[in-house]
Design a protein around this nucleic acid. Structure first.
Length: 573
DNA sequence: GCCGTTTTCGGCCCGACTGTTTTCAGTCG
């Protein structure tokens, strides 16, 4: 028995392989479409197949039902296996090179037998792409640059990936019963948006037992060190992980040492030195004698500082601030009262509106701001004015039924190239709030892009700007934009700037948060969810919001229904 | 591969850019 997710994943792989095989693109799309329908289906696989057989699921016909049933019954798909056998496995990674799609990858494979990134790089260096129809010098240069970019990023991992991996390791170590204290340190604890490795600190009376469990974890692919105080491994995902086991008396200083960035630690040690003491991973020493420090707060206190939240230990101005006073209480996930920027199957979301509303309510939140794509976003099934009307009628019905839970009528409206929003004023006026986002024409000059987005902010219907720079962590740089100019425009016009919490985005970058809050620009933390689990991505947003020193007051979706409704209404006036 | 009918084939979402071409294919979102 295969799960819906497994079947959907198989369908998605079939879709990619069909593209590579040069099949009818609509055939490929049919598989991708079926995968999406299955993921969003409200019920089990059997029920899905039953309804599809009855012709009740548009887009899933006889052939798809048969292949899905095959997978469901056998746990694998003969069709997928057959497609896979037609290509070397390394071919799929070529699709990660920017500018390379199925057609080009297929041409490279057939004409030059290129079947991996290494093959491709060699062929480019030997100028072998130049003779290939449809390829030229520019293409070859761009491919080389793309490979270099992939390589540069490949040593880093998304926070979300590393966090999940770290949790699995921690759970494994806990189960040994050999750990007294157990903490993640490093950039992961600082909640950097991308991290290089996982650092775990522990105290134990039986370190060997803990070390053996660590190197024996099923995800470990390579053990690069295995000692009594430190072990290092490389995991299946490619992430390196270290475990250090310490004496309990050293734990607090070690946690400070292995959590702080290099700059933070340098500043802390310099401060200690002015007090005729030395600070190291082993403790804070006056002469030869270590001070007794129970926890991190004690370390900072001994240095004459208020506690510095781990997320802030980047070596910016946090030590100065910790000397001057306490940090404000930073935002926590439990402060959130609602979710804004959620997609449904009115555009490219998986689930019906009702399901997303119920999922939001089930998380203890009081409201949902639904924001499907606007009409120009054809690739995402953007809403035509008729769809908007239909959605608003459904929202009205649901609001009666689900009260006091509240659904706000939002939209993620494309910012067109001239800065206009993607509907006429009459349509815009029907929304409670509008997220204005750029989804096309990324390569404007910085001045043009800034003008474009500022123009959108000047539009009184714009409540906030979505994913301001369009970046995709580890894969695409954001477009050129003058962020301070945009923040100042937002401040002038009372608009907000979204913190998109999708783990690939985390955009607005935390490095701009303090500037934004200083200007009085609110920063809602938005899941940009396309399925139920996407709602939980707000946790990633909260992590970087803490790095940006945001409090619940700065984040509109921590406000209650009344206050946020007033905020929406004020902006529209 | 699906769908709907001008009912068994032809269309399926689209606009723009890039790099290759000299009118367009491939890629992207």
């Amino acid at each position: 028995m295969a799960t819906a997710a497994e079947i959907a994943q198989a369908l998605e792989e079939i879709a990619v392989l069909l593209e590579l095989a040069g099949e009818n693109p609509f055939k490929s799309r049919a598989y991708a479409n079926a995968a999406r329908l299955l993921r969003g289906f409200d019920g089990g696989v059997d029920q899905f197949l039953e309804q599809a057989r009855a012709g009740q699921i548009k887009g899933v016909g006889e052939a798809l039902v048969e292949k899905m049933a095959d997978f469901q019954a056998n746990g694998r798909s003969a069709y997928l296996d057959e497609l896979r056998s037609g290509f070397p496995p390394g071919l799929l990674e070529l699709l990660r090179v920017p500018g390379l799609g199925a057609k080009k990858v297929k041409a490279l494979y057939e004409a030059l037998h290129i079947a991996s990134l290494a093959d491709l790089e060699t062929a480019c260096r030997e100028n072998r792409l130049l003779d290939l129809a449809g390829f030229g010098q520019k293409t070859q240069d761009n491919i080389l640059a793309g490979i270099a970019q992939l390589r540069e990023y490949s040593g880093r991992f998304l926070y979300s990936t590393a966090r999940a991996q770290a949790e699995a390791l921690l759970e494994h170590l806990r189960q040994t019963g050999a750990a007294q204290r157990l903490e993640v340190a490093g950039s992961l604890r600082r909640r950097r948006e991308t991290v290089k490795d996982i650092d775990i600190l522990a105290t134990s009376k039986t370190p060997k037992k803990l070390m053996d469990a660590f190197v024996g974890h099923p995800d470990v692919r390579r053990v690069t060190g295995h000692g009594s105080t430190k072990s290092s491994v490389v995991l299946a995902t490619g992430i390196a992980a270290d475990l250090r086991v310490l004496d309990d008396s050293q734990f607090a200083a070690a946690l400070v040492h292995f959590t702080g960035s290099k700059d933070h630690n340098i500043q802390l040690r310099a401060l200690a030195k002015t007090q005729d003491r030395t600070l190291s991973e082993y403790g804070l020493f006056a002469s030869e004698k270590p001070l007794r420090l129970r926890d991190e707060a004690a370390v900072y206190k001994a240095l004459g500082l208020h506690f510095v939240p781990p997320e802030l230990r980047e070596g910016l101005d946090e030590i100065e601030r910790a000397a001057a006073g306490e940090f404000p209480r930073l935002i926590e996930v439990s402060d959130l009262r609602g979710a804004l920027h959620v997609h449904t199957n009115y555009s490219d979301g998986d689930l019906p509106l009702r399901r997303m509303a119920e999922a939001t309510r089930a998380r203890g939140w009081q409201y949902l701001g639904v924001c499907d794509h606007s009409q120009s976003a054809a690739y995402a099934g953007g809403m035509k004015p008729d769809d908007v009307k239909r959605q608003h009628e459904e929202i009205d019905r649901l609001n009666e039924e689900l009260a006091p839970f509240r659904i706000f009528k939002g939209v993620e409206a494309d910012i067109l190239v001239d800065g206009a929003l993607d509907y006429d004023e009459a349509t815009l006026a029907t929304f409670d709030f509008v997220i204005a986002s750029v989804h096309s024409r990324f390569n404007l000059s910085e001045a043009e892009m800034t003008r474009r987005i500022v123009a959108a902010i000047e539009n009184p219907f714009t409540t906030m700007v979505g994913h301001l720079t369009g970046r995709l962590l580890l894969s695409r740089e954001g477009y050129a934009i003058d962020v301070p100019a945009v923040l100042e425009a937002a401040a002038r016009h009372g608009a907000a700037i979204e913190l998109n919490a999708h783990p690939y985005r985390l955009d607005l970058d935390w490095r701009w948060h303090r500037k934004a809050t200083a200007l009085g620009v609110p920063i809602p933390i938005c899941p940009d969810a396309h399925k139920e689990e996407g709602l939980d991505d707000v946790a990633y947003g909260v992590g970087v919001a803490r790095k940006g020193c945001l409090t619940a007051d700065n984040v509109p979706n921590c406000w209650d229904v009344k206050k946020i409704a007033a905020f929406f209404a004020r902006r529209k006036k």
